[in-house]
Design a protein around this nucleic acid. Structure first.
Length: 432
DNA sequence: TAGCTCGTTGGACAA
DNA sequence: TTTGTCCAACGAGCT
């Protein structure tokens, strides 16, 4: 009887999980393990909201595994030391996992793989998180894409391979190795500011959200997705980030092209971060390094607390603070306000989103902020500056969203028109 | 190869 | 009130 360790990371599901299938198919014993080693992911260790989600997602995964006769062993890092200890304790001959694409994590995982193989163990990784891994999609000249539409077309041409659903018949070990309690990881916030989070982490919650979206959101997606007062988006982003549902499952269930394009934006974000690993910190377009950003601590604080005096921006940041999530349309407006109206570095905004969003994902967050700042992969004309008032009139015409989150008037901290002119002037400077 | 076209999400202003 | 046009220039990706 051989033993295989399945190292869970951002693939917190049992269904459509290639590494878990491989571990189960070996016919031997499977030991599922989660290792908490946030310092190894610095400077992008999971933020506070993300940790809250992780706690509940791990609890859900353990419950799922127990239905299969397994359980989730929880340990604290360092990862390699911990895996080696588990290999010793269980007599495992193999360790399997599903790949991640963040630069720091890739480097860590490569070291782990080499070390385990040097120990004489099998160490194999799989793709569970993406429809297309970054190296699969190339331009005609063999490089990475930097514009979305050609990337999208290349993906369609390649085709989405649907994975056959195989039933898992894993065996657990006769005796289980020791495990920490989930609470020992200290992932939940103290004091508990997450009370307003109305989410159901875990694959059951993910499946329900997908079903809700397919039944009620998908038909009107084209317009509904832009109205923050409605539940018109899929709201699957945290579930996808933690791998509680696979993009293949979502692709298969949501047949509309306008939504599928969004799913491919997620692919594109991973593609870009993989091929341009510096972009989490640095602008993709190097000329933006000399952009005259401001340091404006008071204005930053006003933005973070939702007290800019622009009600759509304020509503968004307060929705975020209360629920751990902000509607995508409002993210763009709020981000544009920070970057263009306040001239505060996009990296500062990205860091705030990282810490406060339950769906914080390095690839998506980086793409979104660089796109808004105009320093990213697609050339959004620099004169495109969101007007927070016009955006509110357009996308929250009856004021439902605003009255829910930011009902009381706050004096504006800047004059938008003047701020717009200032931003255009700052952008002009880049060309000199 | 050398053009050619296009670029997720907008705003201001003129007609 | 609505619709159309312009707002840089560039570089990606295609033909």
């Amino acid at each position: 009887m051989t033993t295989t360790i399945h190292w869970f990371r951002l693939d917190l599901r049992v269904a459509d999980n290639p590494a878990l299938v491989a571990a189960s198919q070996s016919g031997g014993v499977v030991v599922p393990v989660f290792i908490w080693a946030p310092e190894e992911e610095a400077p992008w260790a999971p933020g506070a909201a993300s940790r809250w989600w992780l706690h509940h997602s791990l609890a859900a995964l353990d419950a799922e595994l127990r239905k299969l006769g397994l359980r989730l062993i929880i340990r604290r890092g360092p990862t390699l030391t911990t895996l080696r200890a588990l290999v010793r304790e269980t007599g495992a001959t193999a360790v399997v996992w599903n790949r991640r694409y963040e630069p720091v994590v890739r480097a860590r995982d490569a070291q782990v793989q080499v070390a385990l193989q040097a120990d004489g163990r099998q160490a194999e990784s799989f793709n569970s998180a993406l429809l297309f891994e970054p190296a699969e999609i190339q331009t005609g000249s063999g490089g990475p894409y930097r514009v979305f539409t050609p990337f999208w077309r290349a993906c369609l041409k390649r085709g989405i391979g649907l994975s056959p659903e195989r039933s898992l018949r894993p065996n657990g070990p006769k005796s289980w190795p020791a495990s920490l309690k989930l609470g020992d990881l200290g992932l939940l916030p103290k004091p508990d500011w997450a009370r307003g989070f109305a989410w159901q982490p875990g694959s059951t919650g993910a499946a329900q959200e997908l079903q809700r979206f397919v039944q009620t959101g998908l038909v009107e997606y084209k317009t509904g997705r832009d109205c923050p007062a409605r539940v018109g988006t899929s709201r699957l982003s945290p579930h996808l980030h933690f791998g509680e549902i696979s993009p293949r499952q979502v692709w298969a269930a949501a047949g509309r092209e306008d939504y599928r394009r969004q799913l491919v934006w997620r692919e594109f974000a991973h593609h870009l971060l993989y091929h341009y690993p510096h972009t989490a910190e640095q602008p993709l377009r190097p000329e933006f390094k000399k952009f005259p950003w401001r340091k404006a601590a008071a204005e930053l604080a006003a933005w973070q607390r939702g007290r800019t005096g622009f009600s759509l921006v304020d509503a968004g940041l307060r929705e975020l603070w209360t629920t751990g999530w902000m509607h995508n349309r409002v993210r763009m407006v709020a981000a544009s306000f920070l970057v263009k109206d306040l001239l505060i570095p996009w990296q500062t905004g990205a860091r705030w989103f990282w810490d406060t969003h339950v769906d914080a994902d390095l690839a998506n967050n980086t793409l979104g902020w660089q796109w808004v700042a105009g320093c990213g992969a697609d050339a959004a004309p620099f004169f495109r500056i969101f007007n927070p008032t016009t955006q509110a009139e357009k996308f929250d015409p009856d004021g439902k969203y605003i009255s829910r989150w930011a009902p009381e008037p706050v004096p504006p901290i800047v004059d938008h028109s003047a701020a717009r002119t200032r931003a255009l002037a700052a952008l002009q400077q880049l060309k000199i």
